[in-house]
Write a protein that binds this DNA or RNA. Structure first.
Length: 951
DNA sequence: CAGTGAGCGAGCTTCCGCTTGACTT
């Protein structure tokens, strides 16, 4: 089976790995006769959208999914657009080779990539699967000498995973579009990640703080001290008359002492009284307890731990960490950075040990190399731990690196070296001090310290803590050398108040850690998971904290109520078990998918992630059933959250708002809630404030004529100005007075519009004059821009300025012209494409509301994403038209369509605005508005500016 | 969520995981 060295010398072999950087390294190890090239990741995948679905499947009901759910979930694969060139290159290289080695990673995805390569390249020469877990000369040579066969079962497991993710994502996301907001998304990973963040916020909202007090005493030994024997030290009150004093951990999340705990809860008065009663007390050491301390080094980095430490020590976000690591990897400074393994190769262990001896001395080197057992449950261990590359580690100084790359390398280097050093050992000491108060109570204080007698690995590396206030476990704290019975004097005794704090929000790093522990996501995706939930507007960053939006509350609420099993925290872990069974040949992919998608009763495997339903009773409905009948999902209900006092927070298509009372009823109130208001800050009081003064208003001044205040705000149809009528003005009924309102011109923005502008705008419509028949002509600003109106006859104006300047003669001249039927019709076609072979009509490309489209005057078809006005050929035009004709005229609820369109469009604009806002927060505070700035964008930016004038 | 008039082609959004450049801001 294995190729002998004789045959190796003869032919030429093509070795395909996943990463170009890896290809480069391996090339050097294999020498002549081997051509090493990269696949650059996956080369084929399910079609992304309709545009990528091959023509022959278009029109199939399942084409949208890219998986034929009616035929054993047969997937449609297409070569990724950006991989076409690479595939071509691989084909060419293969044509010149006598043997093909598929050397992709040895994990589920790698096996699948190998299989796809085989399917696409269709090799006519012998194919071998070769695997290695570390990139060292020996490992590579051994891998070449010991190839194996492709593991089709493992490929099946990957394909099942892929299909499940597609079905989940592409079936559940549209539910959110219909019930919450367009363009939202749901997925096995992102939805659980979002749920974690939401659930933490719920805990924070429900949290009730508790106040508790204690005393801190500063005690003196009466000796002159030094660093190893300080003369004074601080100790905290730990017990009174033998009863332990309550600390933060004794309180539950409701703000009361946990059940049945006999602790003494001190309030401020009690604490101060006790402090006073201890003022004259003489103290003595009651006990000294010393315990040995031992700490082992941390395992070498894997992706998640690197992200966590880079966040804590260097302040990098997950994405930044991976980008810097990628550069280090590409330039040969470190091993692969997307790994779930903490294993070091033999070479690496030797290199680390050599460096320990050289830098710290043999005393710091353990007798045997240290090994670290995998802690990650679903680890696939295709790579080594992240470490400095090579068989001799370069010290940071030797690398010549600088900036972030230097800092990250140094972190990796230190951690790797430290992982092969001895334990740190020392003592931890607890000293208890006692004294009797003036009123006869026994007060016990306690202090603990730690001395390190041998630093071991700490010489090289100390891990950072998530909570900067928490005392580092590794840090030393020295207490004076006291013994039982020693007299101490209290220099000062102070009463300190404390409050329990709600659980901290997730940070990027802590969320990634949580996901890894729950087996959700993979090393290559952790950073992008954060990116996805940020992009969707499910979370936003406040400092380093990830704060869920109200939108995410609505989405998670819907998913929990109607897709409970899918957002169960164990869903992925359970799926992984099932996939492992498929990989071992103990389960079949198709029945498993059938059960997931079509539900129980459609032949299936027992238990596991294939139970898609919400777990109600015994019936386990399939995903298909859940997304088909949406009548049970009350959109209003899932996006409503009571705030208290009759106020409800709702998540609407245009963002969150608070509301009191029913619409159109007496006392109905409604106000926008800023997109970036942390949900736990929306108290009843805050909601009342918002209702009292709708947010987003720009007060422009007072109309000198009416005396009414004039404000600018963002509305349903974009930014507008309006006057605030005095209290008591009837708003409904016969005598209703409507405030004058007017949309801003396109050239204006909410944050820059002036009172003069507003007054001018509100003076519209302007009467231009009357025509010969005495019909009044007015100039108005409308949805489609400035226009003239005479009865029911309206004509567009070219500029907004004309509204104020156009004369009657000019207006009459416009009306003398025949009416233009729409502005689009007036525009010349962008391109002519000759005559359509079917309709025999001339085909042209036009620019419409939805972008460029081809038309023969009868059938219209929008250009697809890959089409371009400049390069489109007549043939492609005919093809698009033919496709369109085949599909037949799209006739839906034609009447309702316009309103719906406007809504959807608007929502999109706002969505973009949210994004722009988020981007603005992270990036510099430049005015990035630039050319394409929509009105909505400007509005959002304006809101932000208004909210934070300190900038 | 304010309410102002015409005429008109829908198509697409979305998942997770594997990899880098090629793009623009």
């Amino acid at each position: 089976m294995s190729p002998t060295s004789e045959t190796a010398q003869g032919g030429r072999r093509l070795v395909i790995v996943e990463s170009p950087a890896k290809a480069k390294t391996i090339k050097g190890y294999l020498g002549p006769g081997y051509v090493v090239e990269a696949s650059v990741g996956h080369i084929r995948d399910l079609p992304n959208g309709a545009a990528e679905v091959p023509a022959k499947y278009k029109g199939e009901s399942w084409a949208r999914l890219g998986v034929n759910v009616d035929a054993d979930f047969q997937p449609i694969y297409v070569v990724n657009h950006d991989k076409k060139d690479q595939v071509k290159k691989l084909k060419e290289l293969l044509a010149e080779s006598d043997e093909l080695f598929l050397a992709t990673d040895e994990d589920r995805e790698g096996e699948a990539i190998a299989w796809h390569l085989q399917e696409v390249l269709k090799p006519k020469v012998p194919v071998r699967r070769m695997v290695f877990h570390e990139i060292t000369k020996d490992a590579i040579r051994e891998a070449v000498a010991n190839p194996r066969e492709l593991n089709k079962k493992l490929v099946d497991a990957q394909e099942t995973r892929r299909i499940l993710d597609r079905l989940y994502g592409y079936e559940v996301s549209p539910v959110l579009w219909k019930k919450v907001m367009p363009r939202l998304s749901a997925g096995r990973v992102q939805s659980v990640a979002t749920r974690l963040v939401v659930e933490r916020e719920r805990e924070r909202i429900a949290f009730r703080s508790a106040e508790y007090w204690d005393l801190t005493g500063t005690f003196a030994t009466g000796r002159g001290g030094d660093a190893s024997d300080p003369s004074t030290f601080a100790a905290r009150l730990s017990a009174v008359d033998g009863r332990r004093v309550a600390q933060g951990r004794d309180f539950g999340s409701t703000g009361v002492i946990k059940d049945g705990s006999p602790v003494l809860h001190l309030d401020e008065a009690n604490a101060r009284a006790l402090a006073a009663a201890l003022a004259e007390t003489s103290f003595a050491v009651r006990s000294v307890e010393s315990k040995p301390y031992r700490r082992s080094p941390y395992a070498p980095f894997r992706t998640t731990t690197l992200q966590q430490e880079a966040s804590r020590k260097l302040g990098f976000g997950a994405k930044a960490t991976m980008q810097v690591a990628q550069k280090l990897y590409e330039n040969g400074f470190i091993t692969y950075m997307r790994t779930d393994s903490t294993t070091l190769s033999e070479t690496a262990v030797q290199a680390a040990r050599a460096q320990v001896t050289q830098l710290y001395g043999a005393d710091y080197l353990p007798d045997k190399p240290r090994t670290y057992a995998g802690k990650v449950k679903n680890a696939q261990e295709a790579h080594e731990a992240i470490r400095p590359s090579g068989d001799r580690f370069r010290t940071p100084a030797e690398t010549g690196l600088s900036g972030d790359q230097f800092r990250l390398y140094e972190l990796i280097w230190k951690r790797t070296v430290a992982s092969q050093m001895k334990d740190a050992v020392g003592n931890s000491v607890t000293v208890k001090i006692a004294g009797r108060s003036a009123d006869g109570r026994d007060a016990e204080f306690s202090a603990s310290g730690k001395t390190i007698t041998f630093h071991g690995f700490m010489k090289a590396y100390v891990e950072g803590a998530d909570d900067p206030n928490a005392e580092l476990d590794d840090r030393e704290r020295r207490l004076p050398q006291v013994t039982e019975g020693d007299a101490l004097t209290a220099e000062e005794i102070t009463a300190d108040g404390h409050a329990t704090k709600p659980p901290a929000r997730y940070t990027e790093a802590s969320l990634v850690k949580e996901l890894e522990e729950r087996e959700i996501g993979r090393p290559s995706t952790y950073a992008s998971i954060i990116g996805t939930i940020l992009d969707r507007g499910y979370v936003f960053k406040k400092g380093t904290a990830l704060v869920p939006s109200f939108l995410s509350f609505a989405v998670v609420n819907l998913l929990e109520k109607h897709f409970g099993r899918l957002v169960d925290y164990d869903f992925t872990a359970s799926m992984e078990e099932d996939l492992d069974r498929i990989a071992r040949g103990e389960a079949q992919a198709v029945p498993w998918l059938r059960r997931f998608y079509f539900g129980e009763g459609s032949e299936g495997v027992a238990g596991g992630a294939a139970d898609a339903g919400n777990g109600d009773g015994d019936h386990l409905g399939g995903l298909k059933e859940l997304v088909t009948d949406l009548g049970a999902i009350d959109a209003r209900e899932v996006s409503s959250f009571p705030v208290g006092d009759g106020i409800v927070l709702r998540v609407g298509r245009y963002g969150p708002y608070v509301e009191r009372g029913e619409k159109d009823s007496e006392g109905h109130q409604r106000a926008d809630v800023p997109d970036d208001l942390p949900p736990d800050e929306l108290t009843v009081e805050h909601a009342e404030e918002l209702l009292a003064k709708p947010s987003g208003d720009f007060e422009l001044g007072t109309d000198p004529v009416s005396g009414n205040p004039v404000i600018a705000r963002d509305g349903r149809y974009g930014p507008y100005v309006t006057e605030v009528l005095p209290e008591g003005t009837p708003k409904t009924g016969k005598n209703a007075v409507k405030p004058r309102t007017a949309s801003l011109f396109k050239s204006m923005a909410l944050d820059t519009v002036t009172l003069d502008d507003a007054l001018k705008l509100m003076s519209l419509p302007r009467v231009v004059g009357k025509d010969a028949e005495g019909v009044e002509i007015t100039a108005q600003n409308g949805r489609y821009g400035p226009y003239l109106k005479k009865g029911t006859d309206s004509r567009s104006l070219e500029t907004e300025d004309q509204l104020f300047t156009i004369t009657l003669d000019e207006a009459l001249a416009i009306y003398a012209q025949p009416k233009q039927r729409g502005r689009a019709a007036a525009k010349p076609p962008l391109k002519e494409l000759g005559t359509d072979p079917v309709s025999e009509r001339p085909v042209v490309v036009k620019d419409g509301r939805f972008g460029p489209y081809v038309t023969d005057g009868e059938t219209n078809a929008t250009l697809r994403r890959d089409d371009d006005v400049e390069t489109i050929t007549p043939e492609r035009g005919y093809e698009l038209l033919a496709e369109k004709r085949a599909k037949g005229p799209a006739k839906k609820t034609a009447k309702k369509a316009p309103a719906k369109k406007a809504t959807a469009k608007k929502a999109t604009a706002k969505k973009t605005a949210t994004k722009a806002t988020a981007a603005k927060k992270t990036a510099a505070k430049k005015t990035t508005a630039a050319k394409k700035t929509t009105t909505a964008k400007k509005t959002a930016a304006a809101k932000k500016t208004a909210a934070a004038p300190a900038e």
